[in-house]
Design a protein around this nucleic acid. Sequence first.
DNA 1: AAACGGACTTAACCCGGGTTAAGAAATTTA
DNA 2: TAAATTTCTTAACCCGGGTTAAGTCCGTTT
Lengths: 199, 199
Amino acid sequence: MELYRSELSQHFVDTFIKKMEFTEEEFNYTVSFFKRQYVPRKFFYLKAGQIAMQKAYINKGSTRTFTMDEKGREHILNFSFEDWWLADFESYHTGKPGTKYIQAVEDCELLCISKEALEKLEIEIPKLKALFEMKQKKMIFSTMERLNEVKTLTAEERYLNLIKKHPQIFQRIPLQYIASYLDIEPQSLSRLRKRLSTK
Amino acid sequence: MELYRSELSQHFVDTFIKKMEFTEEEFNYTVSFFKRQYVPRKFFYLKAGQIAMQKAYINKGSTRTFTMDEKGREHILNFSFEDWWLADFESYHTGKPGTKYIQAVEDCELLCISKEALEKLEIEIPKLKALFEMKQKKMIFSTMERLNEVKTLTAEERYLNLIKKHPQIFQRIPLQYIASYLDIEPQSLSRLRKRLSTK
DNA sequence: AAACGGACTTAACCCGGGTTAAGAAATTTA
DNA sequence: TAAATTTCTTAACCCGGGTTAAGTCCGTTT
């Protein structure tokens, strides 16, 4: 089933047309490889052990990406929202089974493109390759920043940082998930919030 | 001053000749852009605030890369040894002043190539671009793994993990730096080691 | 309206790592 | 070789977050 222009978010269109200066032909051709996929709240887009065979643009909704340790505990690495690209980066690029779970926090509408198609397109349209190379660089920056944050800041500082940088998250993501993202237990987040509210 | 073949480590030569299948001409041409740079123990290859204008191949020696927080505390992100490529990745790619300090732990002999020259070479020799794209991907994998490690493991587990994965580090890096890498104080590492030795 | 289940909070206790301070060991310098 | 400096260890005390266990709140179901 074909994707109609009216079903694409403005941001999606702008990314290709304005930012990457795609022609109408290039854009339509690119779009023809995308397929829509719905992932209802709490359902998984990907699970550890599976191989990431596609990249997904989040047209609507939000997800959490997490790993599970030997004791069965979840550790949220990041949340993703509209206009983000979604994949288990390592699995996608190595072609090996991944280590990450990607679960919808809100009902998601994704626009997916297979690795096969994308690799073909990246050769045909170098601008597309440049786009994803740029995304890749930004991903390294943000992962490094996250690592440095975890190393340098206390739980309280990480919490205040999150409020400052991404206040919208608190409107859409349950506190228990935010706690996991901050590397503390829900009870500790609760205690921390109380401590902050009284001073 | 020119670099002679005999001064290049076998690994450096192999990377280009065997792994990337450079011709002798391509290799010699590439090498002609490299300059040797010595960084004695405790001296800095790069400091926060400076712009990374080059990449360095470590021909000999070891370094530590760290950030400094507002309280003046150092947080070591990683160590680098022979045959690694060295740079403040973010500063190199954004062209903006960096946030990282890179200091020689042992006397270092580096083979450096300017960003300008490398960008030119990457166009002339696509194989070279592919090499650094691959390095970049591996860097993302390892940074993500580090992040996940910091989130999932206790200090003791991170210590045991380091012994298992990189036992050589303990021969070359002072314990105080290893403590910083593990995100604990030197005293805590000492206590932890004692705890482990008695059981 | 009552019952249920999930999300969030509260509290008591415990423990690992931070902090501070001192001393021992190793390495560098004189 | 001695002195000085740096690195590593030990110990006592403290505190933040984990753990366990209830309890509250709220939306959904029956």
